[in-house]
C-alpha cells in the first residue's frame, strides 16, 4: 500500500513535470512577450510594497511593527503565495475548462488529472512574485536584528514550505468548488490574493475575530503570522499558547487532507453528475 502510494505520488510529480515542460516550451515561442510579462509581473507585485514604503513616510510603526518587520511579513507571504501559484495556480481555470469541454481531454490520459491540471498553462513568468518577495525577505533579514536560535533557524524553511503548501491547498480547494459552480474563480481569488494581502500586514492591525478566523478557520495565520511572532519575538494579539507558533507543518498537513477530500468529491461529482 505504502509502495503504491509513493509510486503514485512520484508519477503525479512526473506528470506535472512533463506537462509543465510542454507549456514552458510553448511559451518560449513568444520570447519577447514573456520577458515583458515577467517584468510587468514583478512591477505589479512591487506596487503593494511601494504603498507600504509611502505609508512609512508618515509613520514609524504600523500596528506596533516596524518597516523591516513588515517587509518580513510581506516577503514570507509573497514567497508562499508565489511558489504555490507557480506550482498549482493554473488549477483556477478549471471552470473554464469544464465549460469548454477540455477537461475531458485531461481525463482520457493515463496520468492523474490533478497533476496535469496544476501544470496546465504553467508559466515561468509567475516567478516574478517569489523572486520579488524573496528579495524583500532578504532585505528585511539584513535590517532586522533577529536573535537566531536553533528553533528560529528551523522555523524559517519550515514556514516557507508549510506556507506554500497551505496556499496550494487553498488554490486546489477553491478550484474544487468550480466542479459545482464554475464561476467560483473570483471567490477563490479573495482567499488566495486577499489572504496574502492580509498576511502582508501585522495581525495587530486587524480585528481579533478576523485573526482568530485565520487560526481556527482558514488557517492562513500559519503561513507566516504565527511563526513570525516567534522569529521576530513579537507579542501574540490572541495570546495563544506558544505551540501554535511551531504548528505550521501540522496545519499544512490538515490542509492537504482537506484539499484532497474536496478535490476527490469535486471530481466525483463531475464524473457522476457532469453535464
Amino acid at each position: 500500500m505504502a509502495e503504491t502510494l509513493t509510486a503514485r505520488a512520484a508519477w503525479s510529480v512526473r506528470s506535472w513535470w512533463l506537462v509543465a515542460a510542454m507549456w514552458t516550451r510553448s511559451i518560449m515561442a513568444y520570447r519577447i512577450s514573456f520577458t515583458l510579462m515577467l517584468l510587468a509581473n514583478i512591477a505589479t507585485n512591487s506596487l503593494d510594497f511601494v504603498v507600504l514604503l509611502l505609508m512609512f513616510r508618515h509613520t514609524d510603526t504600523l500596528g506596533g511593527w516596524t518597516l523591516p518587520e513588515l517587509a518580513f511579513l510581506y516577503g514570507t507571504s509573497g514567497l508562499a503565495l508565489g511558489l504555490a501559484n507557480l506550482l498549482v495556480g493554473s488549477i483556477d481555470a478549471l471552470g473554464q475548462r469544464i465549460r469548454a469541454g477540455t477537461l475531458d481531454i485531461v481525463l482520457i490520459r493515463p496520468a492523474p488529472a490533478l497533476a496535469q491540471l496544476c501544470a496546465e498553462r504553467f508559466s515561468l513568468r509567475r516567478l516574478g512574485r517569489p523572486l520579488q518577495a524573496g528579495a524583500l525577505l532578504a532585505w528585511s533579514l539584513s535590517r532586522l536584528d533577529v536573535h537566531w536560535t536553533p528553533d528560529r533557524l528551523l522555523l524559517m524553511p519550515m514556514m516557507v514550505c508549510a506556507g506554500t503548501v497551505i496556499f496550494a491547498c487553498v488554490f486546489i480547494g477553491g478550484a474544487s468548488v468550480q466542479f459545482w459552480w464554475d464561476e467560483a474563480k473570483e471567490l477563490q481569488n479573495s482567499f488566495t490574493y486577499g489572504g496574502a494581502t492580509m498576511l502582508q500586514y501585522p495581525p495587530t492591525v486587524f480585528a481579533r475575530e478576523l485573526v482568530a478566523g485565520t487560526v481556527f478557520g482558514l488557517p492562513l495565520a500559519f503561513v507566516n503570522w504565527l511563526p513570525a511572532l516567534r522569529i521576530l519575538d513579537k507579542p501574540d494579539p490572541l495570546g495563544l499558547p506558544a505551540a501554535f507558533q511551531y504548528a505550521s507543518p501540522l496545519a499544512a498537513a490538515l490542509c492537504v487532507l482537506a484539499a484532497a477530500a474536496a478535490w476527490r468529491a469535486g471530481l466525483r461529482a463531475y464524473r457522476g453528475t457532469g453535464s
Binding site: 510542454m22 516550451r25 510553448s26 511559451i27 515561442a29 469541454g101 477540455t102 475531458d104 481531454i105 482520457i108
Partner: peptide, 13 residues
C-alpha cells in the same frame, strides 16, 4: 480517443 472538434495536440508546438 479522438474528439473531432477538440484536439489533444499542443497548439504552439
Amino acid at each position: 480517443v479522438v474528439f473531432g472538434q477538440r484536439t489533444t495536440l499542443w497548439w504552439d508546438l
